[in-house]
Amino acid sequence: MSAAITPPAPATPHPREETPFRRFVSEFAESKLALLGLGVFVLIALAAIFAPWITPQNPYDLAQLDIMDGRLPPGSVSGAGYTYLLGTDDQGRDMFSGMLYGLRISLLVGVGSALFAAVVGTTLGLLAAFFGRRIDTVIMRLVDLQLSFPSILVALMILAGLGKGVMNVVLALVIVEWAYYARTVRATAMVERRREYIEAAQCLALPWRRIMFHHLLPNCLPPLIVIATQQVARAIALEATLSFLGLGVPITEPSLGLLIANGYQYMLSGKYWISFYPGIALLVTIISINLVGDQLRDVLNPRLTR
């Protein structure tokens, strides 16, 4: 029946049709720097995901390591005839392989914690905005308290209690980050809540969960995406810092931060590569995400509409 009503698809789709998404893409692409950032980040992410297939060595397979190859400068040739592009660390691990594996942990922790925090913070922010009154007061007081202390301090406190571990770091980062999402989402949702379409939905007596997640949430997405991008970069930096301080991930699952910490002691004697290359990887990752984030902010922020 419906087939009869459906108009035939136009032979040639209009290539210039202006959909919100297309406008977003074209506005985003206005900044060459942001495109570069996006490209670099995609490259980094792919390298991290496919690390086991790219790297010449599994740095955690002790059978593949040769302690005699420890602390070789970049370009050295191993006993097995393989060239260590970026040198080796004190265990004789290939730095290039170690770096890509470290990148995996860093990205996993950064993106994972940002996602979890987004879920928690968004839910609480929506609840605060939707129900107001007491719930709002309680949640926002918590947010204020959380934000009045620096992230590093909160994370230290949590890790001092929990000890090292990938999951513990993720948990600490979620606790540090959720408040940013909650604050942003609440602010946006407070504005949206007074719009007619929400009132209409309430008049239809839709269940509040449906109104919250199907009506309110989609309209909070633009600022949410901006915050999330920034928070991924922040999370990666904070994780690296915590691991550098020896409080983050365990030695068995080294992230970039821990790799840098491992090489730190050799830096003073001029063996810079053990710390330097993971550092560069960390840097490029963070900057590329921030470039994307800055452009997203400019494009998605309605106050800056040009």
Binding site: A233, A237, A240, T241, F244, L245, G257, I260, Y264, M267, L268, G270, Y272, S275, F276, G279, L282, L283, I286, I287, N290, D294
Partner: peptide
């Protein structure tokens, strides 16, 4: 923007590498 996004510890390491190790100007 760099000052905002670079992790402090990494910048510290670079400072040491340049001014203490390479140039030898400042104690680390």
């Amino acid at each position: 923007i760099l000052g905002f996004s670079l992790p402090t510890f990494w910048v510290g390491l670079m400072l040491i590498m340049v001014f203490a190790v390479q140039l030898g100007w400042l104690p680390s």
